[in-house]
């Protein structure tokens, strides 16, 4: 059994290391530092952690102000409040002036679990992806979270990092390399390509094994960089495998599926099936039954793959 760890936990822990290397790094939270795990940084470095209270709009505005003075703010809250409630402050005060703010939002997707639909963000990728100047990163595990944070520090501009609440298997080791705008090839295959992001990367790998048992050779791509997206890898997959399935813990409208569809439309249109939340709000429940209920399992990816292949 692989080690399991949430991406929010990895975020909180790695902030401490990043903060040691970069004295300009500051962390802002909106009364959720226990849940977002920025309290780990707060304990290590209290003078560079600011809890602005339950005020997400001001969280983003103050982060922008700190960035104008050369600080590198990491602003954290739940995805629904950061990308949702504070959307227009992110757009106008961070992205429009291209300020160096890292927006690391936790509790994305339905894997929030028991808190229910009001707290389960299924639209944050769409909201962040559509803003000019924004980079959108969605890590699959704890290691990729750390690598993405390194990359985010090196970017002089706004970056959104999409983090989750639930524990997920650690898929990568310390040698893993992440590059913005590059997909990771996790498995070679010729009949269909499974493109997954975030906690759907695990189920995609599982689906590839299930398909193999049925004699279907599936390629698996980890699309951690949603914007910019790896146009070459998608086009190559379209040419070489002729069918594509996307898998994300997000609405099928506006997220990874839409981003891949945009690339296919511009280049090599092939059958595409999108696994994701089907234009519905989430609800309370344990994570595993929720994922099943909303069609986000390895079996759902297998079904979608067979459908895509049949449409060739």
């Amino acid at each position: 059994m692989a080690e399991k760890k949430s991406t929010r936990q990895a975020y909180g822990e790695y902030l401490v290391k990043l903060g040691e290397k970069n004295q300009n790094l500051v962390v802002l939270d909106a009364d959720l530092s226990g849940a977002t795990k920025t309290n780990i940084f707060k304990n290590a470095c209290p003078e560079r952690h600011f809890n602005v209270g339950i005020a997400e709009a001001n969280l983003m505005g103050m982060a922008a102000g700190l960035a104008t003075a050369g600080k590198v703010p990491f602003a954290s809250t739940f995805a629904i409040f950061g990308a949702g409630r504070a959307y227009e402050i992110i757009r106008n005060s961070i992205c429009y002036p291209k300020l160096n703010v890292k927006i690391a939002l936790t509790h994305s997707g339905i894997s929030v679990g028991e808190d229910g639909g009001s707290h389960q963000s299924i639209e944050d990728i769409a909201l962040m992806r559509v803003i000019p100047n924004m980079t959108v990163l969605s890590p699959a595990d704890a290691i990729e979270t750390e690598k993405m944070m390194d990359v985010a520090m090196a970017i002089d501009g706004p970056v959104y990092i999409r983090l989750g609440r639930s524990d997920v298997p650690v898929l990568f080791d310390e040698d893993y390399q992440f590059e913005v705008g590059k997909a990771g090839l996790l498995k070679s295959g010729d009949d269909v390509t499974l493109i997954a992001t975030g906690l759907m990367v695990g189920p995609a790998l599982e689906a590839a094994e299930l398909l193999k048992a049925d004699g279907i050779s599936a390629r698996v791509l980890n699309m951690g960089s949603i914007k910019p997206i790896d146009t070459n890898a998608i086009t190559e997959a379209a040419i070489n495998t002729g069918a594509i399935v996307t898998a994300e813990e997000h609405s099928i409208i506006g997220g990874l599926g839409s981003a891949v569809a945009e690339v296919l439309c511009d280049g090599v249109p092939v059958p595409l099936e999108r696994v994701g939340v089907k234009d519905l709000f989430g609800q309370s429940g344990k994570v595993a039954p929720l994922m099943e209920k909303y069609g986000l399992t390895a079996n759902d990816i297998v079904t979608a793959a067979k459908k895509a292949i049949a449409r060739k």
């Binding site: 709009a57 922008a64 102000g65 700190l66 003075a69 703010p73 106008n92 005060s93």
Partner: peptide, 13 residues
Amino acid sequence: GQGISVAAGMALA
């Protein structure tokens, strides 16, 4: 509403 929030961030820096 956004400018004063940003100004507060500048002042904090």
